[in-house]
Design a protein around this nucleic acid. Structure first.
Lengths: 222, 222
DNA sequence: CCAAAAGTGTTACAAGTACACCCATGA
DNA sequence: TCATGGGTGTACTTGTAACACTTTTGG
C-alpha cells in the first residue's frame, strides 16, 4: 500500500445547505446552477468541501455566507448522505444543513466569481431536476422544517422584527403548505408566550393590525 | 500544493455505533476498551473508518456485526460529529448510529483479535469517562432512543419473539428511566394494534401471564 | 356605505393521566 | 391461606379542531 492510497482511503467530506424562505405564500429553496463537472447545467444546493480546521457547522455557515452574505441565522444539521455513487466523480459524504432566512428582497445575490452560472429561489412544490441526490436532501429538509415549525420558535428567522399575526400565519401556511384556522392559530401562538405586543399598529387599506415581535430572536424550543 | 496535500485536505470519515440493550431493568450501552492510540485504556463506542465502496449505513452495520455478530437489527443514523480536535490524532468526522438489541445472554462477545482490550455493557446512568466526544454521542443517542420509543414500535428489537406485557413494560421503563402506570401502559400499547396475542400463557410463581408477539418484526412508525 | 381585513368565544371530541380493586396461581 | 404478580374501568383534565359574527378602517 502506498502512502497515497493510504491517505485517499476515506471519502471526501462536504456540506450541502438547504436555505428556505417564503415567497408569494409558498416555500422556496435556494438553488445554484452548476457550471462544470458531471452535472453541468443542473441545479443543486449550494455547498462545498469541509476544511481541515473548521467544524461542520462552521463549514455550512461559511458556504451559506458565501452565497447569501448572511450570517447569524438559524442553521441546523439535518442528515448525512453518503451513498457511494451519489457523486459520480468521486466518493463524497455530504452533511446536509437546513437554514431559514427572511426574503427581504435582497436575495439571491449574483453568483460569486464563476463557480455557479446562476442562483435562484425555486418553489419547493415545483423543483427542476436536481444534481446528485439533492432532491432527497430537499425532501428531507422540507419535512424537518415543517416538523420543527410546530414545536419551536424558528419562525422568527423568516420575519422582520415587527409583524402582524396575519403575517405570521401567512408564513406558517407557506411553510406547512396548508391553511390554518385564524382563531385557533392566534390562540395557540399567543398562549406560547413567545410574542410581545409592540403596542403600535400597522395601517393599511383596511382595519389596522396590531404589531408583534418575538421576545427572543434566537433558536429555542417551545 | 503537492498531490499528497491535495488528497489529504478532507477529514477522515468514520462511524460510531451506540448499541443499547436493557439489563437488570436499566439501559446499557456497549463499550470497548481501547488498546492503543491517544486514548489507550479509555472506553469508547465501537466504530471505525468508512470504506470507499460502502454506504454509511453499511459501514455502521459492518462495524456492529464485527462486534456483536448480529445483523438485520434496528440501526438508525443519529448525528454527525465533526468538531476539529475531537480526535487529537487526526481530523475525523464521525457519523453516529444508534442500534438496539435484545440482550439474550450472548453479548458482549470477546474482543475480535486485539483491536480492543475489552468489550462490556455499561449502564448509561453511570458511565466511565469516555474517549473522544463519545459521552456526547451517548447522550444524544439516549435522548433519540427515548423519543423514538414513544412513537415507533422499535421496542420489538429488545424482546424475544414472545413476551408478556409486564416484560414489555419493564423494558420501556428501563429505556425511559421512569416507571409507568400499568393500566395506562396496557391500554395504550394494545390500542396501537402492534401486538398479537399468542393465545398461550407463561406460567411462573404466581398468576400466569398472557403471551404476546409483535405483528411485524421490522421498524415501522406507529 | 361598502369592501376587506382584523379581531374575538364556545362547543365537541379525542387523548392522556390519575387512581383502586379483584383474580389466579404456587408455595 | 397467603403472598405475589396479572388483569381490568372510570372520572378528570388537557389539548385540539370546528365553527360565525362583529369591528375598524380606507376608498
Amino acid at each position: 500500500m502506498t502512502a497515497l492510497s493510504a491517505v485517499t482511503a476515506t471519502p471526501v467530506v462536504a456540506v450541502d445547505v438547504a436555505v428556505f424562505t417564503v415567497l408569494s405564500r409558498a416555500l422556496h429553496v435556494l438553488l445554484v446552477e452548476l457550471r462544470g463537472g458531471p452535472f453541468a447545467g443542473h441545479w443543486a444546493l449550494p455547498g462545498g468541501r469541509v476544511r481541515l480546521d473548521e467544524s461542520l457547522d462552521a463549514a455550512a455557515a461559511r458556504e451559506l455566507a458565501a452565497q447569501t452574505g448572511l450570517d447569524d441565522i438559524y442553521l441546523e444539521q439535518l442528515y448525512t448522505f453518503g451513498t457511494p455513487g451519489r457523486d459520480p466523480a468521486s466518493r463524497v459524504v455530504s452533511v446536509g444543513y437546513v437554514a431559514l432566512i427572511a426574503h427581504g428582497g435582497r436575495f439571491p445575490p449574483r453568483p460569486a466569481g464563476d463557480k455557479y452560472a446562476a442562483v435562484a429561489w425555486r418553489p419547493v412544490a415545483a423543483l427542476p431536476p436536481l444534481a446528485y441526490d439533492h432532491a432527497t436532501v430537499v425532501a428531507t429538509a422540507t419535512s424537518r422544517l415543517r416538523a420543527k415549525l410546530e414545536y419551536t420558535n424558528l419562525a422568527y428567522t423568516l420575519l422582520p422584527r415587527e409583524f402582524t399575526l396575519a403575517d405570521l400565519q401567512e408564513m406558517y401556511e407557506g411553510v406547512l403548505g396548508r391553511v390554518l384556522d385564524r382563531r385557533n392559530f392566534r390562540k395557540r401562538i399567543l398562549a406560547l408566550g413567545l410574542l410581545r405586543p409592540v403596542g403600535r399598529l400597522r395601517r393599511g387599506a383596511h382595519r389596522p393590525a396590531a404589531l408583534y415581535a418575538f421576545r427572543h430572536r434566537r433558536p429555542m424550543l417551545i
